[in-house]
């Protein structure tokens, strides 16, 4: 019973962290004015951390809750459908790649970041009924890869350092 409460509190904290990282990301957006739709994917640090520490199910939940809350707070219904598609594909690929155990957290994070872009663009293509958006994919692959490396490094550091103080996770 006590463990369950602890678990709920911990996941709640993670959701809050992911949310604040999404907000920070939003604040940093004006740094890249020339590339539309580019994001660093900072909340993915938390998702990667959870995926390795707690397994797939908590990671999926926190990821989903984060997207719902971000859409309610800063976005709209359209943005929600994009991020849902991106988040779903990214989550799926990250879980599979983690199972395959071929790459470290960094590689998994890169694949997750790039797949997030792919999911969003596919959804936008579907909603707009246009293929022109495929164009953005090449640019977003470059930025998504770089961001994915940074996010993955942060995530793996977080995983390493929490091993020492494993009282809470």
């Amino acid at each position: 019973m006590k463990n369950k409460a602890k678990n709920v509190a911990f996941l709640g904290l993670c959701t809050a962290l992911a949310l604040i990282l999404a907000y920070v990301e939003l604040l940093l957006q004006p740094l890249f004015p020339t590339i539309p739709g580019i994001k660093m994917g900072l909340p993915n640090i938390i998702i990667i951390f959870l995926l390795y520490k707690r397994g797939a199910v908590p990671a999926i939940w926190v990821s989903f809750l984060r997207m719902v809350l971000v859409s309610i707070l800063f976005g709209n219904v359209m943005a929600f459908s994009y991020s849902l598609a991106g988040g779903f594909l990214s989550m799926l690929v990250m879980i599979v790649l983690k199972r395959l155990n071929l790459m470290s957290e960094v590689g998994v994070s890169v694949a997750g970041g790039v797949c997030h872009n792919i999911g969003q663009i596919l959804m936008a293509m579907l909603l707009l009924e246009t293929v022109e958006l495929g164009y953005y994919m090449v640019i977003l692959t470059v930025t998504g890869t770089i961001a994915g490396v940074l996010v993955g490094l942060c995530g793996s550091m977080l995983i390493k350092h929490t091993k020492k103080s494993s009282k809470y996770c």
């Binding site: 790459m103 470290s104 590689g107 790039v114 640019i139 692959t141 470059v142 890869t145 490396v149």
Partner: peptide, 16 residues
């Protein structure tokens, strides 16, 4: 794993 990471990133960037 780290070697695979680097290969993966390099392939992605090259393709892009």
């Amino acid at each position: 794993k780290i070697r695979n990471d680097i290969i993966f990133v390099a392939v992605l960037l090259f393709a892009a």
